[in-house]
Write a protein that binds this DNA or RNA. Structure first.
Lengths: 344, 344
DNA sequence: GTTAGCACTCTTTGTTACCGAGTGCTAATT
DNA sequence: AATTAGCACTCGGTAACAAAGAGTGCTAAC
């Protein structure tokens, strides 16, 4: 059953008003708005219909109306006022990319910070999985007779390091040879294939040159196993506390607890589609996030998808503005990274 | 004016009871305790004296008493029941050091986590300043024609890395020479002296070998400037939310905001003395932390002080237990690190 | 189809009363 | 002289109740 134009208008004004005020919207206050020309009684009738269809709800029998999840969903899908981004917002976002950009993490963290400051919601950026990057160089720096640091540099300039035990028997000559072999054989290999590749291609070579090679080999292979979880960057974790729907301590606690579980957040945010994605309330599939919405946008370098930017806020979120901001940021970020990594 | 034994006893029981229950302690409930053999009227008289001397307070005219800051201070300084650590606590702390230890950050993070889980307070560990470590090796890995990653490894196995621009003119041969010179000249130099040392000792050498050396030199010198802030490790940031004194959202927000300002926390925790240090309420010198206490303990490797472990909780904190835990952990941590870094 | 009018519902706010836990003081007891 | 029993008093918390206000649904009139 389709909504009439008037119902659409009323739904839109209700959602807009509730997003702004966080207060249930009554027929009388609606009738006073300039975009609405009919009486409160008419509005009451229409609201009764909208409620019957599930787009709005009452908090109690004689209260004003509040958008339901279905209402928000409809609003986001069909009623979003054209996203004219604020000049100030644009300026702030652009400022992130003003200076020369060297490091990925830097710019990502800055993006997250700006987003959370602009919106006053929590922003989360999911970085690229290190595991898909390719090895540029491996280096082993002995610290003393028994331990050494292995350093892995990827083609994106990301550095991983890990300390491990050296075999007592090894000398610096052998170590150097090993490193050379490793670099020769492993250059350009994706990080998550290093472990296998070492056994397949490096083992035999190493055997010829190194005494006690087996234990050393295993040790290196183990060291090279980078956890393939994408790194998360947060900003504004506590912004939720200033939202009126979180004036209840226990809700806040639950929410912050979830936020501190990075693996859950990663699962929540990682998306296989590209572009903007809006999850409202129970669509997030997490009962504690029932009154939250999660808006995600993907970013990429060249044609390769790298990660996701997300904003977590109350269901009563400024969808229009947030979507606009995310679109802008993800596209700016993508082109910055494309340049940074010299994709064409 | 000295306290009588009976006043001491009463003060102690009040503090103990309040720490346990978070409820003001009345004369009647005190008189029922087995360690107390006199009547509630007597207790009332003594409490009036204790209040006059500023050790305890009333929340309103006819309420029970609550320890004042001065009361807590006296309690911590003189009345702490001998810290018999729970076997279970000891076991947990010891478990941190069970496996072979390779990496500093690992063990520190684990310590913070265990502490916060055991106590249900917020735990903060201040790591050592990287700036006092000595350079073990510097490595430069070119990513493409224009950029390269500089990697600095310290004698403690800590790795810092930074991306920077390469001069267009440089070739791999020159780069290799440069790295060799840097390593020759800078090995063992404290991290915070690298910048100066490069200008003093490396500049002239570099000049002989490298074309366009000046800009390159400056670029490297800049890259080598490691921020000399100590790294902070947190655990249980939101534990405060479960403390009854923080049932007020605005308090929680203020507190969490402070906690997210790492530089403030660093200042708060960094201590020049060694050993255990207890700061109660306003002694923390931060009005938002008025109802918090901060207990810190230092840890070291050999005779060199490395950092600080801290527990942040409500003034109504389990001082005895926390101090016990911190003493144990800081000494275990110190000996583990002493071993790890091969101090004698 | 729209709207004015009205009875009704439910939250919010304020008032009042009362209970219980606690105190300070005085007088009796040890 | 120190301790304790007794009692009047204070204050926070809770419940009960009333009144105000915002809102609804329905009916009848426009």
């Amino acid at each position: 059953m389709l909504l009439t134009d008037r119902q659409l208008l009323i739904l839109q004004v209700i959602v807009d008003d509730f997003i702004r005020s966080a207060q249930p919207v009554g027929s009388r206050s609606l009738s006073k708005k300039e975009e609405i020309s009919f009486s409160s009684a008419t509005i009451r009738n229409e609201m009764a219909d909208l409620e019957e269809m599930g787009y709005i709800e009452k908090t109690h029998t004689s209260s004003g109306r509040v958008p339901s999840e279905k209402g928000y969903r409809y609003y986001v899908d069909h009623l979003l006022s054209p996203q004219a981004l604020d000049q100030h917002d644009i300026k702030i976002i652009r400022s992130i990319f003003a200076g020369k950009i060297f490091e990925f993490e830097n710019i990502i963290q800055k993006s997250a910070k700006m987003l959370s400051e602009l919106t006053n919601y929590t922003s989360i950026v999911l970085g690229p999985a290190v595991s898909v990057n390719k090895l540029k160089r491996i280096q082993i720096v002995p610290l003393n007779k028994e331990t050494a640091v292995a350093i892995l540099v990827t083609d994106t300039g990301h550095v991983e390091n890990r300390t491990f035990s050296l075999p007592a028997s090894i000398d610096s000559n052998e170590l150097e040879k090993t490193v050379n072999i490793l670099n020769e054989r492993l250059n350009g290999v994706p990080m998550d294939e290093l472990h296998d590749k070492i056994y397949k291609e490096v083992a035999s070579l190493l055997k010829q040159h190194i005494i006690h090679y087996d234990w050393f080999l295993q040790s290196i292979a183990e060291t090279v196993k980078i956890p393939n979880t994408e790194k998360l960057f947060f900003a504004g974790k506590t912004n939720m506390l200033s939202q009126p729907e979180f004036h209840d301590i226990s809700k806040v606690r639950n929410l912050l607890t979830i936020i501190d579980h990075e693996e859950w957040i990663t699962d929540m945010i990682r998306s296989n589609s590209t572009g903007i994605n809006v999850k409202i309330g129970s669509e997030i599939q997490n009962s504690i996030m029932e009154n939250c919405s999660l808006i995600t946008a993907t970013y990429s370098a060249g044609s390769e998808k790298l990660g996701t930017i997300a904003i977590l806020g109350p269901t009563r979120m400024e969808y229009s503005r947030v979507i606009g901001l995310l679109k802008l940021l993800s596209s700016d970020l993508s082109s910055a990274l494309t340049k940074l990594y010299h994709y064409k």
